[in-house]
Simulated assay, not measured.
Amino acid sequence: MQGKEVKQHLDLLTCEAQKICPDLTNKLQEINLWIKDKKNGLLTSKKFVSAFLIQLIQDSYVWLELKKLSSSEAQKQAYEQMKATERYWYSILFPQWLRSKDAKLYIWKKKLMAGEYEANDEILIQVLSQKINQKGGVIFQRYIADFSMATDIIVSHSQNQSLCVQLTTVDDKYVSDKYKKWQETLEFWEINRGLFSNYNPADKHYLDRIVNLALYNSNNLSDGKYLKIA
């Protein structure tokens, strides 16, 4: 999607959201202000800016379609057709982001536009996604969840319960501090359970370990628990 198309979609979505969803309107207006003076070619050339905007557009269209449904029963049926991780995103986390003040939004918008986001775990997540799918699980990823909610991936398995997972490789002496900030972030967003995995890439079994822990805990971790694996 080219920069001009992105701006057009955002304008259309903002107009439509004004009729039925003030929270979405406010967030879209904030994003519009961020990009309105940027040249279309610049937006297209910024890989992760473009990827985030396209994700936001997709999520906004889905959210508006859900809001247009005439009854709670119709909404329920629509959610039941989604995978568990998508359902968790659209029914819980995305609306939570829309109605809340995101203190990190200004920071990560600035970093995205400056090209400071490098997506170092992009290949890792692709491999994890393949392995999780092979084991009958599902995985979901969103830039908003990553940047604002300390969640690299959302994972679900046989019990159709979604688990927010952060993947990190920090030195042992920094683990406790990062874990504390991670837990505080999840609690702020009312994410009631999560998995913090500080893995060692030198361990030849680390990929399978992450997959097994994510799938097991998506089924079994109790509410109110924020599990640290380091």
Rank of each mutant, 00 (worst) to 15 (best):
K76F: 09
Q55G: 04
D59W: 05
S60L: 08
P22K: 12
L56D: 00
K7A: 02
L33E: 12
W89E: 02
C21S: 14
K68H: 11
V6Q: 00
K39I: 02
T25N: 12
P22I: 07
I92R: 14
L24Y: 12
N32I: 12
R87G: 07
Q58P: 03
R87V: 05
K27F: 06
A74F: 03
K7C: 01
K39R: 07
K4W: 01
K39D: 12
A74Q: 09
Q18R: 15
N26E: 09
L24D: 11
K39G: 01
R87P: 09
K27T: 07
K4G: 00
A17R: 04
L28A: 05
N32D: 04
D23H: 15
E16K: 11
M82D: 02
F48W: 02
I54R: 02
K47G: 01
R87Q: 15
L10P: 02
L66Y: 15
A51H: 09
L56V: 10
L12I: 03
A74P: 01
I20Q: 11
S60I: 05
E73D: 10
L66S: 07
K83I: 13
V62N: 07
K83Q: 10
L24T: 14
K46H: 03
Q58H: 10
S50Q: 13
W89L: 04
D11C: 00
I57A: 03
L69M: 12
P22G: 08
I31W: 07
K67V: 15
E30C: 12
E16S: 11
Q29P: 02
L42N: 01
T14F: 03
W34D: 08
E73N: 09
T44S: 09
T14H: 10
P22F: 07
Q18L: 12
Q81V: 04
Q58I: 10
K76H: 04
I31V: 14
S60D: 14
E73G: 05
G41A: 00
K76I: 13
E30Y: 14
K4R: 08
W89N: 04
Y79A: 04
T25E: 10
Q8F: 08
D11Q: 14
A74E: 05
N26W: 08
L66F: 13
L64V: 06
S45G: 00
A51V: 02
Q8W: 00
Q58R: 06
T85K: 03
L24K: 09
T14V: 10
V62F: 10
K83M: 13
V6H: 04
L53A: 08
L13E: 10
D37E: 12
S50M: 11
E80W: 07
Q8P: 01
W34V: 12
L13H: 02
R87A: 14
A84S: 15
D11R: 13
S91M: 12
L64G: 08
V6F: 00
L33I: 09
Q18P: 00
E86R: 01
K38L: 13
L43M: 06
G41D: 01
Y61C: 09
